[in-house]
Every structure is written in structure tokens, then in C-alpha cells.
Simulated scan of single mutants.
Amino acid sequence: MSINQILDIASSGLAAQRLRVQLIASNIANSETTRTKEGGPYRRRDAVFQAQDQGGFGEALSAAGVRVASIQTSQEPFLTRYEPGHPDADANGVVRYPNVNPVEEMVNLTEASRSYEANIASVRTAKSMASSALEILRVQ
């Protein structure tokens, strides 16, 4: 596997995790949004990843990298609260809130951040290996 392939794989992971972090931030920011343009409360969104086929030589490169296959909108039921004075309350005084759990989102954010850091570590290691190889060639 070449240094370029390693960097391509790591960069695809970086891009995928960056999008995931953006979606998590949007979920957290809208965790109390009861009215959207589409109508009704905000629905939680999440990225779905898929192995990226590079068509390489053998099994080692058959799944080289990751891509975002889709962004799914959660179909979990909304949270409800009895708030008769709220402008979005129904006839029974119940308000529907987004299906976003801030604690779960923070766990997802931690996981995405660690995955991002792991990809950065791969890039640094590949860079170090390339520098070492050049140094060996220069010495001889």
C-alpha cells in the first residue's frame, strides 16, 4: 500500500467524521425546536457510512476508505410535554419536542472526535514513514 493510498483512506475518514460532527451539532442545536419549515418538530439526523471500493489488488484494497452513503432522518417518536401555554401545543395542551437525546448526542460526538483523531494519527504516521524513507535514501 502506497503512502498516497494511506492518505486517501485517512482523508475519506476525516471528511466522513467531519460531516458526522456537523450533524451532531445540528441535532444538539435543534433539540428544543418545535417548529420547522417542513412542519412539526425537528427530527434527529445521522450519517450512514459505507466502505468505499477502490477496485484495488486483492482483498487488501477492496474496501479502501469510507464514504457517506446517506443522511438518515430518525423516525423515532417525538418527545411530548404537557405545556398548555406553549404556542405549538395541540388542543390537549401537549407539545411535541424533537427526538434528540442530548446525552446520546454527546456520546456520539466523543466517538466521532476520537475517530477523527485516529485518522489524523494515521496521516501523521504516514508522513513520518515517508520522511524516514527519504532520509534513508538521502544518507546512502
Score class of each variant (00 low, 15 high):
Arg35Asp: 00
Asn101Phe: 03
Met1Glu: 11
Glu38Phe: 12
Asn108Val: 01
Gln50His: 02
Asn119Trp: 04
Ala10Val: 02
Tyr116Ile: 08
Ala64Tyr: 01
Leu79Val: 11
Glu105Tyr: 04
Met129Lys: 05
Ala89Pro: 11
Ile120Ala: 05
Gln72Gly: 05
Glu105Phe: 00
Val107Leu: 05
Ala51Gln: 01
Ile6Ser: 15
Met106Asn: 07
Val68Phe: 02
Thr125Ile: 10
Glu83Pro: 14
Gln140Thr: 13
Gln5Thr: 08
Arg43Thr: 01
Asp53Met: 14
Lys127Asp: 10
His86Arg: 05
Ser131Gln: 12
Leu23Asn: 11
Ala69Gln: 14
Asn30Cys: 09
Leu137Trp: 04
Ile136Gln: 13
Arg67Phe: 05
Ala118His: 03
Thr34Ala: 08
Glu59Ile: 07
Met129Ala: 10
Ala51Thr: 01
Val48Asp: 05
Tyr82Lys: 04
Ser115Trp: 07
Gln22Trp: 11
Asn101Trp: 03
Ser2Gly: 14
Arg114Ala: 00
Ser11Met: 15
Tyr116His: 12
Gln52Ile: 07
Tyr42Gln: 03
Asn27Ala: 12
Thr110Asn: 06
Ala69Arg: 10
Val95Phe: 00
Gly85Val: 02
Leu134Val: 03
Val123Arg: 04
Glu104Met: 14
Thr34Asn: 08
Thr34Ser: 10
Ile28Trp: 11
Asp88Asn: 15
Gly65Lys: 09
Gly65Cys: 13
Ala10Gly: 02
Gln22Leu: 07
Gly13Ile: 13
Asp8His: 12
Thr36Leu: 09
Ile24His: 12
Arg35Cys: 02
Ser74Ala: 13
Thr125Gln: 09
Arg96Asp: 05
Tyr82Arg: 12
Met1Asn: 10
Ser26Glu: 15
Gly58Asn: 03
Arg114His: 01
Gln5Asn: 12
Leu109Ala: 07
Ile24Trp: 05
Asn99Arg: 09
Gly13Ala: 13
Tyr116Lys: 09
Gly58Gln: 07
Gln22Ala: 15
Val139Gly: 08
Pro102Val: 15
Asn92Ala: 14
Glu105His: 08
Thr73Val: 12
Phe57Gln: 10
Arg138Tyr: 02
Ala89Lys: 06
Thr36Glu: 00
Val68Thr: 13
Arg81Glu: 11
Gln72Ala: 06
Gly93Glu: 06
Asn101Thr: 07
Val21Glu: 14
Ile6Cys: 11
Arg43Cys: 01
Phe57Ala: 14
Phe49Gln: 03
Gln54Phe: 09
Lys37Pro: 02
Ala63Arg: 04
Leu14Ser: 03
Ser11Trp: 13
Tyr82Gln: 07
Ser132Met: 08
Pro84Tyr: 00
